[in-house]
């Protein structure tokens, strides 16, 4: 991978991932504030973070598909903007979150020199993204929690991110490549010749 310039198809497909996940983010916000909050809010609130990883999926999935520098930041940020356009309870703060989470995912692939796109690298990126998001949450929202809850929260967010974004992103890319939808991307060319 020496060509770092984004082609039109890179931009459009990254944007489509972002828009699709923007809608998912929006729906996930309702799930978070509604059922997840109601079920775990009355028992052990940090447990609600088990669903958290989906918010960080674009920061791992987009770089795996597009394989260009900036894919994690761009996609996570635009997804956050789209969810704000649809109306979330976090307003413009989702932009700062999108930027920070995307940058954390980006760092994971930067450390691989934008050359490694395997499961290990996805897990590294997912860990960074999850830890960043959990840290921001503790700072903004859960400063009042007891210390053991804070630790549990970070652990659950990171575990969820590893599962949904790290492992999920890796296998989702493979499944998409299998359908031929990624034929215009290097990530889709690992298929057998047909």
């Amino acid at each position: 991978m020496t060509n770092y310039r984004w082609r039109t198809v890179d931009i459009v497909v990254a944007s489509i991932l972002a828009v699709a996940f923007g809608v998912v983010f929006w729906a996930w916000g309702l799930l978070w504030n509604g059922p997840a909050g109601a079920i775990f809010g009355s028992t052990f609130p940090p447990a609600a973070a088990a669903i958290y990883g989906v918010w960080l999926l674009p920061a791992v999935l987009a770089p795996l598909i597009i394989r260009k520098p900036g894919a994690a930041i761009y996609t996570e940020l635009v997804a956050a903007i789209v969810s704000a356009l649809l109306g979330t309870s976090w307003g413009i703060s989702v932009l700062w979150y999108g930027l920070a989470q995307g940058a954390a995912g980006e760092l994971g692939f930067l450390l691989g020199g934008y050359r490694r796109w395997n499961l290990g690298q996805s897990l590294v990126a997912a860990t960074f993204a999850g830890a960043t998001a959990a840290g921001l949450d503790l700072f903004y929202y859960y400063g009042d929690w007891q210390f053991s809850w804070k630790i549990a929260y970070v652990a659950i967010v990171v575990a969820s991110t590893l599962l949904f974004a790290g492992v999920g992103g890796h296998f989702l890319t493979k499944a998409l490549a299998g359908t031929g939808a990624l034929d215009r991307f290097p990530s889709g060319r690992s298929r057998d010749l047909v």
Partner: peptide, 8 residues
């Protein structure tokens, strides 16, 4: 002639 990437 043209051959798409990934095709024989």
């Amino acid at each position: 002639g043209w051959r798409h990437a990934g095709r024989r």
